[in-house]
Amino acid sequence: MPLLLDDATDPRVLDPARISRARSLLVLSRDDSANLDIVMAAREANPGIRVVMRLYDDDFAATVSHTLRASYPHAATRSRSVSALAAPSFAAAMMGRHVLGVMPVERGVLLFTVVDVAGHPALEGFSIHEAFKQNEWRVLAVGSSGNSAAYRPESPSDTLGGLYLPRVTGFDWRPPHGRVLRAGDRVVLATTRRGLDILMTGVQPHRTPHFPPAGTEAGDREGRRT
Score class of each variant (00 low, 15 high):
Glu222Thr: 13
Ser157Ile: 11
Pro16Tyr: 09
Leu100Gln: 03
Val187Asp: 01
Tyr151Glu: 13
Pro176Ser: 07
Phe90Asn: 11
Thr9Phe: 02
His177Glu: 14
Gln204Pro: 08
Phe211Gln: 12
Ala84Phe: 08
Thr63Phe: 12
Ala34Ser: 01
Pro212His: 07
Glu130Cys: 10
Ala122Glu: 15
Leu3Cys: 09
Gly178Pro: 00
Thr63Lys: 12
Asp185Gln: 08
Asp32Arg: 10
Ser71Met: 12
Ala42His: 01
Val114Trp: 04
Glu130Phe: 07
Pro88Arg: 07
Pro121Trp: 05
Asp7Asn: 04
Trp137Glu: 04
Arg152Tyr: 10
Val168Phe: 03
Val180Pro: 01
Leu68Cys: 07
Pro11Cys: 01
Val180Glu: 00
Asp7Pro: 00
Gly119Glu: 07
Ser24Leu: 09
Pro73Gly: 11
Asp58Phe: 12
Gly161Met: 13
Met1Thr: 05
His66Gly: 13
Val99Thr: 10
Ala118Met: 09
Pro205Leu: 03
Thr77Phe: 13
Ala45Ile: 03
Val82Phe: 07
Asp10Ile: 06
Ser65Ala: 15
Leu181Pro: 00
Gly143Trp: 08
Gly101Gln: 06
Phe211Asp: 11
Ser83Phe: 11
Phe132Glu: 15
Val27Glu: 00
Asp31Glu: 10
Ala218Ile: 04
Leu36Trp: 02
His206Met: 11
Thr192Gly: 02
Asp116Ile: 06
Arg30Glu: 11
Ser83Thr: 13
Pro205Gln: 10
Gly162Leu: 00
Val102Asp: 10
Leu100Phe: 04
Pro121Tyr: 10
Arg167Asn: 13
Arg97Tyr: 15
Leu110Ala: 09
Ser71Thr: 14
Val139Glu: 05
Arg43Asn: 01
Asp158Cys: 09
Gly119Ser: 01
Arg194Thr: 02
Ile19Met: 04
Thr208Pro: 08
